[in-house]
Design a protein around this nucleic acid. Structure first.
Length: 396
DNA sequence: CATCCACCGGAAATAGGGGGGC
DNA sequence: GCCCCCCTATTTCCGGTGGATG
């Protein structure tokens, strides 16, 4: 008789359009990004007259609107090109999901030729299909590679995509690389760097006032009128400003605050909701970052976090206790054995360290004086205690 | 100053999963 | 089913590196 969903399906009373706060939502108006939008579209515009735009590298911290701006510009480009009947196409690919040369090229072909069956083909044969299609249809492509730092051997990918322009007579491929990792650019070899970074765009973080405006606009879309108190918005903006001007963080806090208020049947969203929401969001962020990593990476981080919490490390004059890669490796091995997981060799362990560094989860410095040779010191970016508590709850 | 140490990172080898073609 | 190809993950091997050590 009674359906399970009778109970759980409840109409939102506070939210009007909850999605407007989701990280995937692209608002029609992006405040304080007018310059970036204009610049980006100007740089891409030559494509409409048949010229190949320069490759563009976009850098900016998390939540500075890189993705939203890029998607918006590409959407408009596609809409315009379609209206004018031009063979121009902007394609968006997220490097976290498509994290190898093979996957990216496969994805490109899939987007251009949805019917293509690509399983089992080598990268170069898929690349040839891409070339064939671009050439035959005289396509002019802009490929936006978001979170480009997550893609393995990006150099090869960029080289290959760029080389297309030499091989093709009738089409072109331009690249927009997007990253929030300041180390990424410097890790590229000189040739890749000069290829990708023909144009560079830096997105500055938002300040508290700007965050407030942004939040206000979204809140108007997301909630019913008058539901969210002015204070609540300011507080969320202030938190986000302190958190490197991260607008996504601000929106996430607001979303959570709305959920909390909704859940307890409150009529309004106020400061207390925002405050509680912030805690949740902070845990979410650490959790998100770590839970999506492969097992061995998580293990490594768990080992590192527990060492930091326990205060294990070598005492140095300047920086308090530090952890060398060798120490971390033995600790990691121990933890792996405790959990019945076979640890990887020290060589591969070093690869993991490098990966985690490019993800921005750890930071690595050459030890230099006081340590032998090239020993590196490992630093954990997120809060070690939070990670350990997640470990204890068995989440990691 | 020669040698040692603790680690670095490139290269080649190996294992294994997935597919295609026959 | 068998053989081969391609990609990915990982191990093995090994020649650096650069400060520490005696």
């Amino acid at each position: 008789m009674s359906n399970l969903f009778e109970e759980v399906h409840r109409e939102y009373t506070l939210f009007r359009n909850r999605d407007a706060l989701s990280p995937h939502y692209i608002p029609s108006h992006l405040p304080y990004r007018e310059d970036e939008i204009r610049l980006l579209s100007q740089k891409i515009a030559p494509i409409l007259s048949g010229k190949k735009p320069e490759n563009i590298f976009i850098y900016g911290k998390t939540g500075t609107g890189k993705t939203a701006v890029t998607k918006k510009v590409l959407n408009d480009l596609n809409e315009y090109a379609e209206r004018k009947g031009l063979p121009v196409k902007g394609l968006y690919i997220n490097g976290r999901m498509y994290d190898s040369e093979h996957k990216v090229i496969m994805r490109l072909v899939k987007m251009l030729v949805p019917s293509a069956e690509l399983m089992g083909y080598s990268t170069s044969s898929i690349y040839d299909m891409l070339m064939e299609d671009v050439d035959r249809r005289e396509r002019r492509l802009v490929v936006a590679l978001d979170e480009i730092d997550m893609v393995k051997r990006v150099g090869d990918l960029i080289y290959r995509l760029n080389r297309a322009n030499d091989e093709l007579e009738r089409g072109s491929i331009s690249i927009i690389g997007i990253s929030n990792n300041p180390l990424f650019k410097d890790r590229l070899d000189a040739r890749t760097k000069s290829t990708l970074c023909e144009v560079e765009l830096v997105f500055p973080p938002y300040n508290a006032e700007q965050l407030r405006t942004i939040l206000k606009e979204r809140v108007e879309e997301a909630f019913h009128k008058g539901v969210v108190e002015e204070d609540a918005i300011s507080l969320a903006a202030a938190y986000a400003a302190r958190n490197a001007g991260d607008a996504r963080y601000a929106l996430q806090v607001m979303l959570r605050a709305g959920d909390i208020a909704e859940e307890e049947g409150a009529k309004k969203v106020g400061r207390e909701h925002v405050e509680r929401a912030r805690r949740l969001v902070e845990e979410d962020i650490v959790y998100e970052m770590i839970s999506t990593l492969p097992e061995q990476h998580r293990l490594l981080i768990a080992a590192l976090a527990s060492m930091i919490v326990k205060g294990v490390g070598v005492e140095t004059f300047g920086k308090g206790k530090v952890i060398t890669s060798g120490m971390l490796y033995s600790n990691y091995k121990r933890l792996a054995q405790e959990r019945g997981i076979t640890p990887v060799s020290d060589r591969w362990f070093r690869e993991y360290l490098n990966e985690l560094e490019t993800y921005g989860i750890i930071e690595v410095h050459v030890a230099g004086k006081g340590f032998r040779g090239n020993t590196r010191l490992i630093e954990l970016i997120p809060d070690a205690k939070k990670i350990v508590s997640l470990m204890e709850r068995g989440v990691i």
